[in-house]
């Protein structure tokens, strides 16, 4: 009887493993990406385009829940520029030259983020579940491949995302972005994951824009702090002006 039970259990294991469907993987991924209460990054941003010298920028990023605050440190013409995402459809930008905080409409989110191949939409998407429906396309020993389509009421610049999610880190290794016409427009690669406790993060995020001759932007993480205790009030218009 015990042998029979063991046999049944062994037969069932693959069934349970295969039970990972798109929504559950997406939920797990969002959970993995939001384990930290807050995070702080310092990035070096390298823009590369064929036939041109690479351009380098430096920026600091604070993330807490769906909120994100980005401040440029270099080059000089962008220094002090801040972008605040409080929600997917509530974004602000502070331009020091004008000493003014300006609300940014969601139609602007399809535009490049400060000249990078990352769009404002890419930057503002902290969690994918609230914006996309996920379905499992395939699975290997090391990764799931998800197809993400926008939810009916979501505002997003893309028609589809194909995302390879690492089973080890439960975070994206690659994201292929497709426009509304189902054309593959960008590819993002996240690599060099490291972990602080159960919070993992990629050391490099590289976005290649296929519509611009494979121009690319790579965000190379120079500093990373987890759970710094930053308050919600840091993600405010008030803070942008300070």
């Amino acid at each position: 009887m015990r042998t029979f039970g063991l046999l049944v259990a062994l037969l069932l294991i693959p069934t349970f493993a295969a039970a990972d469907d798109g929504p559950s993987v997406l939920a797990k991924m969002d959970e993995s990406m939001s384990r930290a209460v807050d995070q702080y990054f310092e990035y070096e941003v390298v823009n590369e385009e064929k036939g041109r010298d690479p351009k380098v920028m430096e920026l600091d990023v604070w993330i807490k829940g769906p909120m994100r605050l980005t401040e440029f440190q270099a080059p000089g013409d962008m220094k002090g520029t801040k972008a605040l995402v409080r929600a997917h459809d509530q974004m602000y930008i502070y331009l020091p030259a004008y000493n003014k905080v300006r609300r940014v409409a969601s139609s602007m989110t399809s535009g490049g983020f400060m000249g990078t191949t990352f769009s404002n939409d890419d930057i503002s998407t902290v969690l994918y579940g609230p914006v996309y429906e996920g379905s499992l396309q395939s699975e290997t020993d090391t990764a799931w491949v998800l197809v993400l389509t926008p939810k009916a009421d979501a505002k997003t610049a893309y028609g589809k995302l194909v995302m390879t999610v690492s089973k080890k880190y439960i975070q994206p290794d690659t994201i292929e972005y497709f426009n509304r016409k189902d054309q593959h427009v960008k590819t993002e690669t996240r690599s060099g994951y490291t972990c602080e406790g159960d919070v993992c993060n990629a050391e490099s995020m590289k976005m290649v824009d296929h519509t611009r001759g494979d121009a690319s932007t790579e965000l190379v993480r120079r500093t990373w702090k987890v759970n710094t205790g930053v308050g919600d009030d840091e993600f405010s218009v008030r803070n942008l002006q300070n």
Partner: peptide, 8 residues
Amino acid sequence: PSKAPNWT
């Protein structure tokens, strides 16, 4: 400041 940071 935490719950309603834009109310000033």
